[in-house]
Nucleic acid binder design. Sequence first.
DNA 1: CCGCTTTTTTACCATTTGGTAAAGTCACGA
DNA 2: TCGTGACTTTACCAAATGGTAAAAAAGCGG
Lengths: 211, 211
Amino acid sequence: MKVTARMDQPSRKSPSRIQRQNRKRILDAALDTFSQHGYRGATLDQIAEAAGLSKPNILYYFTGKEDIHLTLLNRLMLTWLEPLERMEADGEPLEELLGYIRRKLQMSRDFPRESRLFANEILQGAPRMAPHLETGLKPLFDRKCRLIADWVSAGRIAPVDPGHLIVSIWATTQHYADFEAQLAVLMPERAALWQGAEAHLEAMFRKLLTR
Amino acid sequence: MKVTARMDQPSRKSPSRIQRQNRKRILDAALDTFSQHGYRGATLDQIAEAAGLSKPNILYYFTGKEDIHLTLLNRLMLTWLEPLERMEADGEPLEELLGYIRRKLQMSRDFPRESRLFANEILQGAPRMAPHLETGLKPLFDRKCRLIADWVSAGRIAPVDPGHLIVSIWATTQHYADFEAQLAVLMPERAALWQGAEAHLEAMFRKLLTR
DNA sequence: CCGCTTTTTTACCATTTGGTAAAGTCACGA
DNA sequence: TCGTGACTTTACCAAATGGTAAAAAAGCGG
């Protein structure tokens, strides 16, 4: 019996060139839209227009609005945690931490939309992200907290609350992406902003972590 | 000729008890909704239900969705800038700054919805807030930057970039309100969170500002 | 160039959304 | 207690929104 087999995702295997291209365009447009308006504030029509495709065409590639959003969130988590993962036990503690801060700030500069997508989702109570936080972020966070605690008890950095240290790093670095609209008013010289930020954060955390 | 005089706001003068009460209920419900979903993601029906009023009744007190949002934003700016304004030239610089940090963190704890409303608006590019930023925040920011710069050149605190210092204070304190959903996963002991935050921020900025 | 699959368009649909008109209902001072 | 203005409800509406069905058009291997 021949079933017309409505596919959840078009063609399970070997996505065609067109598919790869269009899915990418859609996700890029959706990143713009979701990161600016949040999940509920974003509309499929907006995404469709930004992607240069018709709305039904978009729904040919994704099963729905939530599917697009979820796909973005899943992708994001991969790259988002990577800088923290790279902070390892075998380096000089201070340099490992400062390196992490530098990478995180770079991500804010180079991927502000991703940062805002994440911020929007958390602001709204992380309804579509709770599993990611629990299974992806939490274990990593705990692991790195232990690593920092070890550095502290070995006397290799100044005593500090590991959890709040990491939170401070997130807060200060992500702020430059998430509150860009505010900073554009307060510190209009955009070029100077980022190098000023890097110098300031480096100085601040260096001082904090040195006894 | 008798004109039925549709009023923009019901009764220009001496708002009745009912008016004060209902406007407050509406604004409170709207604060919940807007701070969680952003401007576009919030709906009048949601606000109406949270306020326990019918939608047309809400539109009797406010001319529209934007009116409600704008009213919230205007109110917010008053209280939001106050902690920074209270940081004055005549105190001990370090204590003035640490006092500001403490007040700002308290606001995050006591008024997280207001913090998130603000964050949402900035995330979305501050479309309804640009004037406030330009005429309200910017002058204050510049003034306090000069104050801090004076403290630095007088050698009363360690050398620091005043603008980025203020931004760091905003980032670290507001983060505890705006990313509450994330912190709830990572640091579940809610009571310890806030005192841990206060201790950590005090230590961090004290170290930064001490030569 | 044919036939089959993949992709896109056209035409819809039900629900939601911001908002209005107008008919009530309530409160309170004369 | 009665009239008048303040407040609330009911009944709508046009546009927007997420989504679907099915026909039409491209691609593409043979």
